[in-house]
Amino acid sequence: MFFIQLRDLFKSYGSIRALNGLNLQVPKGSLYGLLGPNGAGKSTALKIICTLLAPDSGSVEVGGFNALLDEKETRRKLGYVAQDVAIDKILTGRELLHLQGDLYHLDKKHKKKRIEELIHRLDMHEWIDRRCGSFSGGMKRRLDLASGLLHEPELLILDEPTVGLDIESRSVIWGLLKELRKNETTILLSSHYLEEVDELADEMAIIDQGKVIASGKPDDLKKELGGDRVTLRVREFSDEVEAESVRKLIKNLNGVSNVVVNQKQGYSLNFLVQSNDVISNLSGHLSKENFEVFALSHSRPSLDDVYLQATGKTLMDAELELAGKRDFKLENKKSMR
């Protein structure tokens, strides 16, 4: 059973297309990770699910409700922790939680009890009565998470919850998310941290240029790659012609698959090998064609490899590429209510 279903979502900010036919199904009670570089469309998708943005076209179903028509019912079901922590600097942490409780119409007794529970669970008692303006990034994020959880939502949406956080805060947040997952809360988490999605998510989707390019369980996606990941460089700075020659040579070897030329990293070659024997024999095959091994690394496949396989670039390279293209001013203007 799916708690969230997005079908053919399109959304543009001026001439920039943020979502390009996004389809997503999030199972009830799962922790679902959305992985992709900044600018891939993750935040836009989350804002649409939260009823903060309307798509240009497509359908959005949350907890059995059409989020585009039954906005209020949808809002009752979800807690949202935004990428940019929005707190009132003048209020204390406790006052902010009380305000949040009133916005969700919690009765006085229940509100007080929930606030105390969350203060204890997120280890906020030492600073909760200080004004929010004096909080560090980690404190703000924990407070924001407490706000999102105060009304015990069936769905918790977190947009890049641990960006720029200290290890302690990250560990507290990860711990809580794992606990919530056990309690059958559906969690949708966007991140561009591979290890975060790998560590937490039951299922995940990789988003690139506004659409899902791969989805499934992280382990399954890695297994689908079919072997260990090898990165090879025949020279420090190779060129396209040379890389292409090596690619043709390697792809015909037994036990080698999915050969990709990574242009962004000096035309290095990434491929999968079925066994260590292939690596042992590799330099022999290369030297026959007058190629040398300048650098070779061998590792178990990671989500970055899954991303690389799907897009032909690493997540970091994709981020750098997108960073230059984004018009944050226009995006803010268009998404500001």
């Binding site: 903060l52 979800l78 949202y80 935004a82 929005a86 969700y104 706000s147 209510r337």
Partner: peptide, 16 residues
């Protein structure tokens, strides 16, 4: 509130 994102906190709540 709009510029600093606090309005989103209000708008995402199921206000009567």
């Amino acid at each position: 509130d709009r510029e600093f994102g606090f309005l989103n906190r209000l708008l995402v709540a199921p206000l009567s």
